[in-house]
Amino acid sequence: MIQLVEVTKTFGTGSSGIENVSLSIDRGEFVFLVGPSGSGKTTLLRLLIRDMVPTKGLISVNNVNIGNLPSDKIPHLRKQIGVVFQDLKMLTDRTIFENILLPLEMAGISDNEAKKKAEDIMSQVGILDHAHKFPVQLSGGELQRAAIARALVFSPDILLADEPTGNLDNTTSWEIIKILQDINKAGTTVLMATHNMDVVVSLNKRTVTLEKGKIAQDTKKPVKSEKEEKEGKEHSEKKHHEEKKEPEGEAEVKKEEESK
């Protein structure tokens, strides 16, 4: 589904965003992309939507080499990939409903159909009540949900999420993770860049670690052994106990993970 072969992206300043990165992600996978700031996570995501062109190497999405994709084909690629941007990129002079409607309008979908799709997706992520509010009127978590809804309007094959839990409290972070898990269960490949190691450890999914633009580690299989997972859970429980109240989203996510 997503394949990167020895991809390097060097910027004009000479600094390299990523260097010789090779990575293969299958359909339906949930992959965490972790690493310190400046390690190249966002660069990698931007390369996948052809917001940047690789300096070297090959990137293919759904078996299409996007490195030499003609500019008129880029909109088509972007319809296949939903993106939750780190800074959300919500248009502040439009309501949440209008923001979510925007990609559908651009695709030339009829008003009624677009409206129905937008309402469905908003209901799915739980922000239908905020449809006619402006972004400034929403909380961080609600905005994050709106950004996810906008990324999902085309029912994309792939969802890229850049730090979707950044700046969110623990409870809200788990609610967002729950939404992303549901999306993944429905068949969408999810690639999530994050700093939130609690989430990464708790969910026990494939994790790609970037360091200075290179892949330092790729756990093709879940990262933890059963023992480590138990320890991780105890650690999380202890931590949340200290917060006096365990977030509902996290409990729900963990429960699902355990039932697997």
């Binding site: 939507i49 917001d51 500019s71 008129d72 909109p75 088509h76 972007r78 319809k79 993106v83 941007f85 990129k89 248009l91 925007l102 990609p103 651009m106 695709a107 906008r150 085309f154």
Partner: peptide
Amino acid sequence: KDEIEVMRLLSATKWY
């Protein structure tokens, strides 16, 4: 500029 950038990232064509 920002709005146009967002539109492009959300799959807007040049002519849109």
